[in-house]
Design a protein around this nucleic acid. Structure first.
Length: 255
DNA sequence: ATGGTAGAAAGTCTA
């Protein structure tokens, strides 16, 4: 099973990119973020024609998550206890015997901003939800745009970023609390070096200069670690015309 | 500290 995560930053704009990438990369499961589409406008037919079923939780203009899979998607969850949130950022579904949780983590804007407090609160509730998911589903994948660089290797210029948003110690502690549940950052099972990023700002020719962050993650439970065969960041779509600012990240599981 | 670019949508807001 090849599983992927991609923040497409408007599925309306990026549908051609997604279809091309599905054809090239042949993933079995794909978690999308920032679809920015109401459910009524989700391109389910175009994706079905490409061989993918889909479930989605979207809204107009902002946020929006979706999971695509070649096989049936069961037991869909869009809302979690203790988080009465109109922002569509969470989507869970089961494929085969693998539970998949797609997250579009709150950006937070700036340390100290009210959005930052919302981010930390949101992560706390998601942590509690994942604890339950892990108890129910030993084979758990939690993936998406985490909007947190796990450590300084994941930041092109750790001095400049310092303890700013996406890098601040409380955010990193919240992520560590999640991985400490028994969810490994799959990319780091295969690659320990820095300079591997999944997002580059549209400004300052950041992609060309590889001024990026690794904030798109695929976390896997202990029961899946032995099946992990390869992890990668596919930079190709970031180089296409009118790209998303994020590029797909992938994990191959021998299942 | 600010602004640079992109998307949605028609003002700004979000990232």
């Amino acid at each position: 099973m090849k599983i992927a995560s991609w923040n497409v930053n408007s599925l309306n704009v990026r549908l051609p990119h997604l279809l091309q990438w599905l054809a090239d990369a042949q993933p079995d499961v794909v978690a999308l973020q920032e679809t920015k589409l109401e459910d009524a406008k989700f391109p389910a037919d175009a994706l079905a024609a490409a061989g993918y079923r889909s479930v989605y939780s979207g809204q107009k203009t902002y946020n929006g998550v979706a999971i695509l899979a070649r096989d049936e998607l069961r037991d869909v969850v869009t809302d979690i206890p203790g988080l009465d949130d109109p922002q569509r950022r969470i989507l869970a579904a089961t494929v085969g015997d693998v539970r998949v949780v797609d997250l579009y983590v709150v950006n937070g804007k700036a340390v100290g901003d009210e959005k930052y407090a919302y981010k930390l609160h949101w992560l706390e509730r998601v942590h509690a939800f994942l604890e339950g998911e892990l108890a129910r589903h030993p084979k758990l994948v939690v993936l998406g745009d985490f909007n947190i660089a796990p450590d300084d290797r994941d930041v092109h210029d750790p001095v400049a970023w310092g303890e700013d948003i996406l890098c601040s110690p409380p955010e990193r502690a919240a992520l560590k609390a999640i991985t400490d549940l028994g969810l490994a950052d799959s990319f780091r099972l295969f690659e320990s070096a820095g300079e591997h990023y999944s997002w580059w700002d549209y400004r300052q020719a950041a992609f060309r200069r590889n001024m990026g962050l690794r904030i798109d993650l695929i976390l896997i439970s202990e029961a899946l670690k032995a099946a992990a065969a390869a992890a990668a960041i596919d930079r190709t779509p970031r180089g296409w015309e009118r790209p998303s600012d994020h590029t797909p990240v992938t994990l191959d599981l021998d299942l």
